[in-house]
Simulated assay, not measured.
Amino acid sequence: MKREKSQGSQRDSLSDTKKSLGVRLRLARQMKGLTLKELAESSGCSESLLSKVENGKVLPSLPMIHRVVQVLETNISWLFDEPADDESVIFRKGTRPFITLDKHKGTSRGLMLERIIPYKDGHLLQCNIHHLELGGQSGETITHEGEEVGYVLTGTVELTLNGDTFRLETGDGFCFRSNIPHSYRNIGDDAASILWVCTPPTF
Results as ranks from 00 to 15, higher is better:
residue 21 L to D: 06
residue 79 L to E: 05
residue 103 K to Q: 09
residue 53 V to I: 15
residue 90 I to L: 09
residue 47 E to I: 07
residue 171 G to Q: 02
residue 176 F to E: 05
residue 72 L to R: 12
residue 83 P to S: 11
residue 150 G to E: 05
residue 58 V to R: 07
residue 47 E to N: 08
residue 183 S to P: 03
residue 180 I to F: 07
residue 199 T to Y: 03
residue 157 V to W: 00
residue 134 L to R: 07
residue 185 R to Q: 14
residue 119 Y to I: 02
residue 112 M to N: 13
residue 11 R to I: 12
residue 195 L to I: 07
residue 111 L to K: 08
residue 161 L to F: 00
residue 31 M to E: 15
residue 131 H to W: 04
residue 181 P to L: 08
residue 54 E to R: 05
residue 10 Q to K: 08
residue 187 I to Q: 07
residue 155 G to L: 08
residue 50 L to F: 04
residue 133 E to K: 04
residue 15 S to A: 04
residue 178 S to D: 10
residue 148 E to D: 11
residue 177 R to G: 11
residue 137 Q to T: 15
residue 111 L to C: 13
residue 35 T to M: 04
residue 120 K to C: 09
residue 137 Q to E: 14
residue 159 L to D: 02
residue 27 L to R: 08
residue 14 L to M: 05
residue 35 T to Y: 01
residue 180 I to G: 07
residue 56 G to H: 07
residue 8 G to M: 14
residue 19 K to Y: 05
residue 158 E to Y: 03
residue 174 F to Q: 01
residue 60 P to C: 11
residue 140 E to G: 09
residue 194 I to H: 04
residue 99 I to L: 10
residue 45 C to M: 10
residue 114 E to M: 12
residue 94 G to A: 13
residue 119 Y to F: 12
residue 14 L to Q: 07
residue 76 I to P: 01
residue 116 I to T: 01
residue 193 S to L: 07
residue 12 D to W: 05
residue 139 G to P: 02
residue 150 G to Y: 01
residue 50 L to A: 08
residue 57 K to I: 14
residue 144 H to P: 13
residue 90 I to T: 04
residue 194 I to R: 01
residue 89 V to H: 02
residue 134 L to C: 09
residue 120 K to D: 06
residue 200 P to R: 02
residue 189 D to I: 06
residue 35 T to D: 04
residue 165 T to E: 06
residue 94 G to S: 12
residue 63 P to V: 11
residue 12 D to V: 10
residue 197 V to R: 01
residue 6 S to H: 08
residue 75 N to G: 03
residue 35 T to W: 01
residue 102 D to V: 13
residue 100 T to D: 06
residue 171 G to D: 06
residue 30 Q to L: 13
residue 112 M to D: 12
residue 24 R to N: 09
residue 113 L to K: 08
residue 113 L to N: 10
residue 57 K to M: 12
residue 112 M to A: 14
residue 136 G to P: 12
residue 52 K to C: 10
residue 152 V to L: 03
residue 39 L to N: 09
residue 147 E to A: 14
residue 177 R to W: 13
residue 22 G to D: 03
